Every structure is written in C-alpha cells, then in structure tokens.
Computed example of a mutant assay.
Amino acid sequence: MSTTMSVIRVYRYGGPEELKLEQQPRPEPQEGEVLLRVQAAGVNPLEWKIRQGLAKDFMPVTFPYTPGDDVAGIIEGLGPGVTSFEVGQAVLGRGNGTYAEYITAPAEAFVLKPAALSFAEAASIPVGVTTAWRGLFDEGELEAGQRVLIQGAAGGVGLFAVQLAKWKGAYVIGTASTANLEFVRSLGADEVVDYTTTPVESVVKDVDLVLEGVGERTMRSSLATLKPGGKLSSLAALPPLEQAQARGIQAKMIAAHPSRSILQAAVQLIEEWRLKVSVGKTFPLAEARQAHEYSQRGHGRGRVVLLV
C-alpha cells in the first residue's frame, strides 16, 4: 500500500483555480476511526461557496484545507477499538476532506453500502438525504396530507426531498427548469412548476411547508406561497426572519449535521426500492476544478460526483 496519496488542497479563497491536486502522506486511523479508500466523493454547492469565501462569516476555514463531505469507499484499515466494520467492506457516509484518495473518519460516520448501488450513487446520498430529512421532518414537522413546496426539486437535496415527502403522504409541489420537469414528476411530485417561465407564487398558494434549496433569489417567492403559520426550511441562505415573523411563518436555516440513524433509515428505503438515487455529472478527482465550475452554473440534476 502506497504511503502517499492524491488530494485536492485549497490555500486561499478564490475561484475554481484554487483547487490544487497534490501528493500528501496517507493518513493513519486513530482510536475509533477507519481508514477509507475513497471511491467517490460528492460535490455539494456549499463547498464552492466556502472556497469562494461566501460562507466565511459562519463557516470559516483554516488554510490549507481539503474540501468534501459526502463519500463512499472501501474500508482499508481499522483504528483501535473499531469492531463495527471489517477491512474490505464497502460503506457510505460523511467525512472531512473527502476530495482525496484516502481519508480517516470515525467509524460511526458510516453505514454499509447497498450492494445494488454504485460508489458514485452511494456518494451522492449522505448530505442530500440528511438535509432533506432534517428540513422536512425534524424541523418542518411534515405530516401526511400537508402541502409542501420544494424549491430546486431536481438537485442533490431536492430529489430526495420529493421522494421522502411523498413517502410521508404529503402533497408535493416541486420547482425545476424546463429540462428537469419530467425528472421531478418521475420522483413522484404531484405538481411541477417551471421556474424559468412561471413565478411560483403566481400558481402555488397556502402550502404548509417550503423546503428552500435555491437561495436568496427565490426566498421572497417561497414566503409568498406559505399560508399563515406555515414553516420555511432554508438550506442555502439565511431566511428573512422579520418578514417571516410578520406573516406568522416559522423560518429556520437548516444545517445538515451528520446522522447515522437518518442514513440507516434512507438505506433501508433504498433497499426496499422506495427511494431512488440519481447521480448528476461525474468527474475524475483531477478535474475537481471543472466539477466546481459545473456545479456553480446551477440548473443541474442530481449530485455532482468526483470519481476517485
């Protein structure tokens, strides 16, 4: 086994050109950790926002750093005290600095990968499904029969949110670009609004919950669709709390804290064919810059994934 590895490093805030491919010593697992040979790493929009410095007020970084959170791979080593996994098992989960050939992370950050999923599919799941679950259920308290609007329904969070909300028994309305309307319908959405041609607030009213996955430019329309007393779960920007309060709306910014229990629940739904996984465009690790450039353009379908 090589003692070095390829890894992406960022030394200062800036554009995609700040993503540098380098060689670094391979890490060693400590107490309670596993060594993971990374097969695929998800690219989340938050990662290019952090790289640009757009999130430094609430998510500062120490340079140099390696981006990445979503990951799928093969366990190659066990730290002291790890009994929940064996070397050679394929897993998915969340790590720190996953744009690399190897990472170490706490064993409890991972669950076994469903055999039917590719590593790219597995790496597209953790942040997306955890964020959707928290926004809909933990914070949104979504119940069967309620109406939910999912802004950005074709994206890495939105595609899981549509399916989870339908699984819960909600009436689901999604927004998507023209190219993704049929895709969102195929996920089970009851209605799909083409945001490139139709202001969503002109056709959607009195929803109980909005999962706001786009950001500031759609926040006002999201608020306008909610009934008084409704809830707004914002994933991409701080919601306008004063405006929300004036209308009796509970607005919260959702942070996708890792949750093994949510991952396990999602994996079970996937294995029962109740939850579909859809990967967006894939890039090799050496093309992390191009992956970020593509992600920044928006309007994508599914999670962008780096193949390691």
Rank of each mutant, 00 (worst) to 15 (best):
A132S: 13
T4S: 14
E76N: 08
Q264T: 15
G97K: 08
E28R: 15
Y99T: 05
V267F: 07
L159V: 06
M253G: 01
W273R: 13
R303C: 14
V305E: 02
Q146E: 15
P239N: 09
A161W: 03
G79H: 14
D208Y: 03
Q151L: 09
L46P: 06
L46Y: 09
A120K: 13
G215I: 06
E139W: 11
L164G: 14
G300F: 03
G79S: 08
G152F: 06
H292I: 03
I50S: 06
A109T: 01
W167M: 10
K281W: 08
R51L: 11
K231F: 00
G95C: 12
Y294A: 11
L232E: 07
E108A: 12
K231Q: 04
A90G: 02
P29E: 09
R260I: 02
L136C: 07
V192T: 09
Q268T: 09
S261P: 05
P106D: 08
L275H: 04
D70P: 11
G68P: 09
L209F: 10
A288S: 15
T130A: 12
W273Y: 10
L112E: 15
P199A: 15
V172Q: 00
S124V: 05
F63S: 07
A179C: 00
F160N: 04
E191A: 14
S261R: 13
L223F: 10
K113D: 02
I74Q: 15
A90H: 12
Y65K: 09
L211H: 06
L187R: 03
M219W: 05
R51Y: 08
T66A: 09
P284A: 10
I173H: 05
K252N: 14
A100C: 04
Y99W: 07
A251K: 00
R220D: 11
S202I: 01
A246M: 03
K166H: 14
L181S: 05
V204C: 03
P64D: 02
G14N: 04
T282F: 08
Y65F: 15
K276W: 00
Y99K: 09
V162G: 05
A251G: 03
G79Y: 11
I50C: 05
G32W: 01
N180W: 12
A109C: 07
D190V: 02
K49S: 05
T104I: 11
I103Y: 11
A100V: 06
K205S: 13
A179T: 13
Y99I: 00
L223R: 08
T130N: 14
P199K: 11
E22K: 11
G174H: 10
R217G: 01
Q24Y: 05
N96H: 13
G152Y: 01
D69C: 09
S6I: 00
A115G: 13
F183V: 01
I249R: 00
R12H: 11
A100F: 03
T196V: 01
P228E: 10
D70M: 13
S118G: 12
Q89R: 02
E242M: 14
M1P: 00
